[in-house]
């Protein structure tokens, strides 16, 4: 059985937010909505280290949906619009969601996003706020994002770039690509090559090998959500990448 998961190597993440941007474009997220976040841990502003000089820390933490094994969002959904597919992907059916937002309350990672108004209106506002006087594609059929609607085998709509209003959306691990045997956009778009995507149940997959060799952790482990996104902790860097062990206390 395939069980997809992701490893994010925090040593390799340079905090450039390319994953967030490519995700936003490819998955047609309306302005104001982000499936993917990258923040500097502990800091109010991204890319600003925390602490007092010279004791500074700057760890970048990218957060997609964890595709939890014990996913609270799946359990709370009254109509089964959010469900776990056989391959482990936690998906939202855009045609079934009633917009109750119980899942937003249930998800501990804050990854779920609601379409508070018609997404086209968000786009129009986006243009307007950025100083353009007209909406460039208000009347056209064009929308940014992967252009083809995607349905699962049993016909459930899990991706469309013409997003309906009043439904919840979130990271799908790029289901439209995974179903074609292609990695998620964030994995391919990361210039630091920080992400590995693959089958956790296949001992020969790259992700399984990496997880075997390295110590990894998951976010909010104590909640028991059993995320399928793993992180490789960042090592402290000194000088040219070495680790310093002091002689004396």
């Amino acid at each position: 059985m395939v069980r997809y998961g992701m490893v994010i190597d925090l040593n390799r993440c340079i905090g450039c937010r390319s994953c967030a941007v490519v995700c936003k474009m490819v998955n047609a997220q309306p302005p104001g909505t982000w499936w993917q976040r990258v923040e500097t841990v502990g800091s109010e502003e991204h890319m600003v280290p925390v602490g007092e000089y010279p004791n500074l820390s700057e760890v970048f933490l990218p957060v997609p949906c964890m595709h939890c094994e014990n996913a609270p969002c799946v359990k709370v959904c009254p109509v089964g619009a959010t469900w776990t597919r056989e391959d482990g992907l936690v998906l939202v059916d855009f045609e079934r969601c009633i917009g109750c937002r119980y899942c937003i309350t249930a998800c501990p990672y804050g990854v779920r996003q609601f379409n508070w108004q018609d997404p086209d209106e968000n786009v129009r506002q986006g243009f307007e706020r950025a100083g353009f006087d007209s909406n460039w594609y208000a009347d056209g059929e064009y929308r940014y994002g992967y252009p083809v609607d995607h349905r699962t085998e049993d016909g459930r709509l899990v991706y469309t770039n013409k997003r309906p209003r009043g439904v919840v959306e979130k990271c799908t691990f790029c289901v439209q690509f995974v179903d074609q045997g292609i990695s998620p956009a964030c994995v391919r778009g990361c210039p630091g090559n920080a992400r590995i995507f693959g089958d956790l149940d296949d001992p020969d997959s790259e992700i399984s090998k990496v997880l075997k060799d390295r110590s990894a952790f998951r976010l909010l482990e104590d909640l028991g959500t059993e995320p399928k996104v793993f992180y490789i902790p960042p090592a402290r860097k000194e000088g040219k990448g070495g680790v310093r062990y002091g002689e004396k206390i």
Binding site: G42, E52, N55, P108, G110, Q113, W116, Q125, L220
Partner: peptide, 24 residues
């Protein structure tokens, strides 16, 4: 709910991972 402990020599605190509002 998503808070990350930040432990440093001088201070330690729980940092809340911000959430996108969903509006322009």
């Amino acid at each position: 709910p998503f808070r990350v402990p930040v432990v440093m020599a001088g201070e330690s605190f729980e940092w809340e991972y911000p959430i996108a509002l969903g509006e322009v």
